[in-house]
Design a protein around this nucleic acid. Structure first.
Lengths: 146, 146
DNA sequence: CAGGAATTGTTCGTGTACTAACAGAAGTTG
DNA sequence: CAACTTCTGTTAGTACACGAACAATTCCTG
């Protein structure tokens, strides 16, 4: 009767909606990231990290691997290239593709930032007890889909 | 030993990091919102909803209530005003403040969109069982902080 | 009351994020 | 092989999101 979680009957409070809280949680994480790794944005770090994991990738493929669309990954890669962290060359087999790889400098930076990246994940989850954090991650993963 | 959740020792996989999954979950929600309510962005809806909840507010106060900084809320309010959903006037008591309120049109739109907004929250949580959703929301709230 | 501090709103610059439209290359099929 | 389709990357436009700097106003405190 008094169930606010009902999708059609209960009252609607913005502060209780998943989307709104999700946005705030994301904001908190972004703030932690910016504080601990000021020289790279989370998105840039994600692209660099994934590229280091994969070794190499085409631009759009890297975008898919990091959940960025073609337009977004382009800007991110442009900035990483301008800073000499990522190298790009035209693919020999497929003239459409841009072949990407992390430069030595990019790999070194990635390695150097790894401890801080781990810290950020830890700090982000700090409000939760270890058990809670594990449960949360599992449910969040489900929610993210794909 | 083989614990990937350890913040200083384990291996680092981008796909397992809170921040990355949080971003993907947010993306999924944004896509659902855009599909079900194409005429308003989630942020615009949040501002309108909060303003309807509160009745009235100054611009920065509304920003705080919706987790937007001064620069962001300004743009959002500008767009809502341009569409006649929100009215603004200089505050009589405090010449700095912009007094905001939802217009009749704004309130009607808000009321009309409410069922869809509820649906979006429901759809967002759809990958989770009801029990899981409840747990998730609680943990997410903790994570968002403040 | 005077002068410093805090608040309110604005502007600028940078960086995601997505849609839509496009060109060129590669793959598929009749 | 020619037409169609798909895939790759690019560009333009809109909308958050935040830091930094700023002017005007109000508050606070000596």
């Amino acid at each position: 009767m008094n169930d606010n979680s009902d999708a059609t009957t209960g009252s609607y409070r913005l502060d209780d909606q998943v989307g709104f809280i999700l946005r705030r949680a994301n904001q908190r994480h972004l703030a932690l990231f910016a504080r601990d790794i000021p020289d790279l944005t989370p998105t840039q770090f994600a692209a660099l990290a994934k590229l280091c994991e994969l070794g190499q990738a085409s631009q759009n493929a890297l975008g898919r691997a990091t959940a960025m669309d073609a337009a977004t990954i382009k800007g991110v890669i442009d900035r990483l290239r301008k800073r000499g962290l990522v190298a790009a060359r035209r693919d020999a087999d497929d003239a459409r593709r841009v072949h990407l790889s992390a430069t030595d400098q990019g790999q070194q930076l990635y390695a150097a930032l790894l401890p801080r990246a781990r810290e950020i994940s830890k700090e982000t989850l700090a409000p939760l007890a270890p058990r809670e954090a594990a449960v949360f991650l599992q449910l969040l993963e489900k929610l993210a889909g794909e």
